[in-house]
Each structure stands twice: as structure tokens, then as C-alpha cells.
């Protein structure tokens, strides 16, 4: 199902090209005019990849792969190596991206749980998702299960209003799983298509908070046994290697079915996702490219990698 095809991908390019000017320039500086790829060039590519948060090991792996591929190439020039590295990067994203599609319509309500550490943009993402589902003609209910952070409920309330969807809220400090429960009950009773559950930001090394997440999941399954249909882990593109641990730890308590990478409108490259996808086989569902309600886009591996190296 291509739900968000109304998305204008130019925005990604705009956002990313602002982001990527540096990377692109440095690639061009590195490679243009050089006939043969030498070690120095590969070093510079290493720098570009590492400064994109791709990580030491993955970078080494990609460069090794590129070397092997290049070995059989007669024409070892600029464009060839860019293409080779690109191919490597896309293959990481694509191979693992053969995942199940959103099966909205098959399940009613279709329940989406949104999790992540503090400050990554969970609530904003939910606001944008709600908006997209709503304009796609679906009946959306959001549940404010972040009852911990000051004014988190109010924040989600404002987003719900903007997206023109309904919201279930309880007072500050209530049991988050009871909010999730009530939301699913309400959705079932009143024929909602989509349920979006916002959760409190939690650092993945805090076991009690991670247990709480399990409980949220369990109470929802009492109403609709298949819930949640999707658990989205939101990652901040600014985050470095710690995102790998986040993905590991969240996966331990609840099966993560997709990633959302936010704040890609900055200069951060979000390259840590290559490692996560490689290791966890979780696809990226959406990317966030701004604070406005329509600043959420479908993730497309080729586009993402192309944008990294786009020279125009």
C-alpha cells in the first residue's frame, strides 16, 4: 500500500542537499580529475563515511567491498567509485528492506506503537503520521501514553488538533498502559481505522521503563490480540553510535517493525542506520525533515543514498 505517495520528495532532496552540500563537495574535491583511485582517495572516502556516523566497522566493510568490486573494473575513475560505494550502501538498505507492507485495512483498528529515547521526536512524528493517515481518509485515534514528561499530553493534544484527529488522554502521572488500553477499547468501539500510541521517552538502559513498555504492549493485546501491528522506533539522525544500542535494547522488549529517522533537515547524516539495518534487519519506514505537519516522508533507499551523493 502506498499510503504516503502524496509526499513531495523534493523536500527530502531540498533538506538533504542542504545537508549534503558538504559531503558532495568533499567527494568531488576528492575524486574529480583523478584517474585512478589510490589509497589516499579511499582514506578520504573513509572520512566521508565515518563523519556520516556510518561507523568504523561498517565503513571498513563498505570500503573493502568497494575495493573488491573495483578490482575487476578497468575504468577506475571518479564516477565508478562513487557508484560502487553507492551500490554498496543501497544494497545494505535494500536487501533488508524486503519487509511486510503496512497491512492497514486488514486489521481494524490497525495499532501503531511509537517508542524511542528522550528527545528524538516521537510526539512530532505521531502528529505527522496522524495527519497523513487522516488525509488518506482514515479514521485516526491517538493515545497519549506519555503521562510522565511535563506537558507531553498537551503537546500531543495540539498535534491531534492540527491533524484533526481524536485523542485519548488521562491526567499526568496515570498508568501509561491504562491510557493505551482505553485508546484501543475506544478505537474498537467506535470503528477507528488507526490507533497511534505515543509513549514516554525512555533511555534503553533503564530496565523498569523498558518493562513498562512490555506492559503497554500486553494490555493492548488483551483487546485486540494482534496489537500492536507496528512498533516504530524513532531515531534522531543527530545520534551517533549509541543508536545501535537503542535498537538492540528496544528490540529485546518489543519487536521493532520499523524505524523512523528524524531531524534529517539538519547537517547530520543519520548514517548509523546502515549498521542497525545490517544487524537488526529492520526497515526504515519514514524520515522526518522538519517541524511542520507535512515534513514526514516515506523512506526510499535509493533516494536516500542518491541524495547523499547528489552533485546538483
Amino acid at each position: 500500500m502506498s499510503l504516503f505517495d502524496n509526499i513531495n520528495f523534493k523536500k527530502l532532496k531540498d533538506g538533504l542537499s542542504k545537508t549534503r552540500t558538504k559531503i558532495v563537495n568533499s567527494i568531488s574535491e576528492t575524486l574529480n580529475g583523478k584517474a585512478v583511485v589510490d589509497d589516499k582517495t579511499l582514506d578520504e572516502i573513509e572520512e566521508i563515511l565515518i563523519t556520516s556516523d556510518i561507523g568504523f566497522d561498517t565503513t571498513a566493510k563498505i570500503i573493502t567491498q568497494a575495493r573488491i568490486r573495483l578490482h575487476n573494473e578497468k575504468n577506475r575513475i571518479t564516477t565508478t567509485i562513487i557508484d560502487t560505494v553507492k551500490k554498496e550502501l543501497i544494497s545494505v538498505l535494500e536487501v533488508e528492506n524486503i519487509s511486510h507492507q503496512f497491512e492497514i485495512g486488514k486489521y481494524k483498528p490497525f495499532v501503531i506503537l511509537v517508542v524511542g529515547v528522550n528527545g528524538v521526536g516521537k510526539t512530532t512524528t505521531i502528529g505527522k503520521l496522524a495527519h497523513n493517515f487522516q488525509i488518506a481518509g482514515l479514521k485516526v485515534l491517538v493515545g497519549a501514553a506519555d503521562t510522565f514528561r511535563a506537558a507531553a499530553g498537551e503537546q500531543l493534544g495540539i498535534w491531534a488538533k492540527r491533524a484533526n484527529v481524536e485523542i485519548i488522554q488521562k491526567e499526568h502521572g496515570s498508568d501509561p498502559s491504562s491510557v493505551a488500553y482505553d485508546t484501543v477499547v475506544e478505537a474498537k468501539k467506535n470503528n477507528f481505522d488507526i490507533v497511534l500510541i505515543d509513549t514516554a521517552g525512555r533511555l534503553h538502559n533503564k530496565s523498569n521503563l523498558m518493562e513498562e513498555l512490555k506492559k503497554i504492549k500486553n494490555v493492548m493485546a488483551k483487546i485486540v490480540p494482534y496489537a500492536p501491528n507496528e512498533t516504530l522506533l524513532v531515531l534522531d539522525a543527530t545520534t551517533g553510535q549509541n543508536a545501535i544500542l537503542q535498537a538492540d535494547e528496544f528490540s529485546k522488549v518489543t519487536e521493532i517493525s520499523g524505524l523512523v529517522v528524524t531531524k534529517l533537515d539538519g547537517t547530520a547524516k543519520g548514517g548509523v542506520v546502515f549498521q542497525i539495518i545490517n544487524k537488526q534487519k529492520i526497515p526504515i519506514r519514514y524520515i522526518g525533515v522538519g517541524e511542520k505537519i507535512d515534513d514526514l516522508q516515506n523512506f526510499q533507499p535509493k533516494l536516500f543514498v542518491d541524495a547523499i551523493f547528489d552533485n546538483t
Binding site: 563523519t51 543527530t238 547530520a268
Partner: peptide
């Protein structure tokens, strides 16, 4: 600054 920030920290 978030302690989890990656390579981009220098830019911001």
C-alpha cells in the same frame, strides 16, 4: 548537548 550526539556535534 545530548551526550548521544554523533559526528555532527562539531557542526552544530
Amino acid at each position: 548537548v545530548d551526550a548521544m550526539t554523533g559526528q555532527d556535534a562539531v557542526n552544530s
